[in-house]
């Protein structure tokens, strides 16, 4: 077992926290793991990418060219990460900010042997705009699984906008099962212990978001619905 995960989004969307929680959870589960943020000269803003690897054996290079799981949370980050998609990659995206064809356009850009138009590829991937996909496997011949989660919309309408990233984390856990939900909870309790102690409602908000993210994939029609 060796999973390479890249999480990309706008600075301030909390993508590094997603990466850190995943890695912390993996470490707590006794797995080998590396987490590496990409970082530029800006303190805030810009596209931010977290690289996480989780394995049952020692990890070589902390960076990778192709991701097993790619999470993209903004249109700009789609552009930045197009190179990480390869046959076999699962792409998880925020369908409330990124349109499905854009995702598929990205995957086509990588798979240079594909000549399908973006819309056609979206169709093939079972990822038509407006059609619920519920995280199902896409057709075998594309070998790229895309899962749209309307995370920003749900966070805004049902939860708190600030727990957007934890909702995404829940979805990642449900789709990839790369670490257990329990391990992720423990990691969060450890990492945010001071914040949680100061403001107990943060714990409730975050764990509610985690649950909602998990349930999105397991029980709901997580459509590209805008």
């Amino acid at each position: 077992m060796h999973t390479k995960i890249a999480v990309a989004g706008e600075g301030g969307q909390g993508v590094q926290s997603i990466g850190e929680i995943l890695a912390e959870a993996a470490n707590r589960s006794g797995l080998e793991t590396t987490y590496m943020p990409n970082f530029g000269v800006e303190q805030r803003g810009g596209v931010s990418i977290a690289f996480v690897q989780i394995s049952d054996r020692p990890i070589g290079s902390p960076k990778f060219k192709r991701a097993d799981v790619l999470v993209v949370l903004s249109p700009r980050s789609v552009e930045r990460t197009r190179g990480y998609v390869t046959p076999g990659t699962t792409v998880i995206y925020d369908s409330s900010s990124i349109e499905a064809p854009k995702i598929d356009d990205m995957t086509i850009g990588i798979q240079s042997w594909e000549t399908l138009a973006p819309e056609g590829f979206a169709d093939m991937a079972g990822n038509r705009p407006g059609k619920g996909i519920k995280g199902e496997e896409v057709r075998r011949d594309s070998n790229v699984r895309t899962v749209g989660i309307p995370a920003a919309r749900i966070a805004k309408e049902e939860l708190q906008p600030r727990v957007f990233n934890i909702l995404i984390l829940g979805a990642i856990l449900a789709i990839t099962k790369v670490v257990t939900v329990e391990a992720a909870r423990e990691a969060m309790e450890h990492m945010f212990r001071e914040k949680f102690a100061q403001r107990p409602e943060l714990r409730d908000d975050n764990f509610a978001a985690l649950e909602r993210g998990l349930s999105l994939v397991e029980t709901e029609q997580a459509g590209a619905g805008r």
Partner: peptide, 10 residues
């Protein structure tokens, strides 16, 4: 290097 500085691992 920067990777080693910024990376997390056990």
């Amino acid at each position: 290097d920067g990777y080693q500085g910024k990376m997390r691992e056990a």
